[in-house]
């Protein structure tokens, strides 16, 4: 069977495909949030050392992991747009940037609210915290650079370069707790396993999955607007049922 791999690289077919997929991502995300919060607040036991404050983990860890992951995906799409000159990849990169910035902000915000009761400080210039702050600035720089250049394709190329160079920061965040002696604790979840209580793990992975699906849903809604904005002079956009009615 011959599959046309490039079919959905065309904005017109991609637009229709994701339009059907968005409700599925959105609803499964919502359901998983409810399950994850239920396990996180009612099933998972109180932590011996941190009391109830540790429950911040169930939102802090997923937003932090995803802020890094989304950056790599964004840089990957931006690079693809730069190398293969595919419009849609660059549009995906632009659609991911605001959500990534919000995730980085939430990671810092929830981290500050966790740091205050545990370390006695909202903020310290620790390697982990500082490199995550740099990640937020990279997202904001990407968005600002794109907004500053009028021609969208030139903006794509310039911001792609920024995104690619900036991706060096992601391993720095990830390994910062190993490389430097920091206040931030090391990873509890490692590739080799974890020491966490089963219910805590279930809550965290459910919340991670819920946040992930949320990110997919909102960025796909955003990329649909970007497609409409950038392709407004094409016939297929003018012929869309939501436009003609």
């Amino acid at each position: 069977m011959a599959i046309n791999w490039f079919k959905y690289a065309a904005p017109s077919s991609f637009y229709g495909l994701i339009g059907k997929m968005i409700p599925w991502f959105a609803w499964s995300s919502g359901i998983l949030f409810i399950i994850g919060l239920y396990i996180g607040f009612f099933v998972a036991p109180t932590d011996v050392q941190q009391g109830e404050a540790y429950r911040i983990m169930f939102i802090h860890v997923p937003t932090s992991i995803l802020s890094m992951f989304v950056y790599l995906v964004m840089a990957g799409y931006a690079a693809m747009g730069l190398i293969f000159n595919t419009r849609l990849s660059s549009m995906m990169a632009s659609a991911l940037a605001p959500t990534g910035a919000l995730l980085a902000f939430l990671s810092l915000w929830t981290g500050a609210l966790w740091g205050k009761p545990m370390w006695g400080a909202w903020w310290v210039w620790d390697a982990r915290l500082t490199s995550e702050l740099v990640l937020l600035f990279l997202y904001l720089g990407f968005i600002a650079l794109q907004a500053a250049i009028d021609d969208p394709r030139r903006a794509d190329r310039a911001s792609a370069l920024l995104a690619i160079v900036g991706s060096v920061n992601v391993p720095i965040i990830y390994f910062s707790v190993k490389w430097w002696n920091t206040l931030h604790q090391g990873s509890t979840v490692k590739f080799s396993g974890t020491s966490m209580h089963v219910a805590m793990q279930q809550a965290m992975y459910t919340m991670l999955l819920a946040c992930w699906l949320y990110v997919i849903a909102v960025s796909l809604i955003r990329v649909r607007s970007i497609i409409l904005e950038r392709e407004r002079n094409t016939q297929w956009v003018t012929d869309l049922p939501e436009v003609t009615k």
Binding site: A53, R55, I56, F105, L106, L113, P117
Partner: peptide
């Protein structure tokens, strides 16, 4: 939350607020 209400609900409240605002904006 055994005295940690500000920190726990401050975290989840901000996350909820951000998600709702982002959904409205997109």
């Amino acid at each position: 939350m055994n005295g940690y209400a500000l920190y726990v609900w401050g975290s989840y409240g901000m996350a909820l607020l951000i998600f709702i605002i982002e959904i409205i904006l997109v």
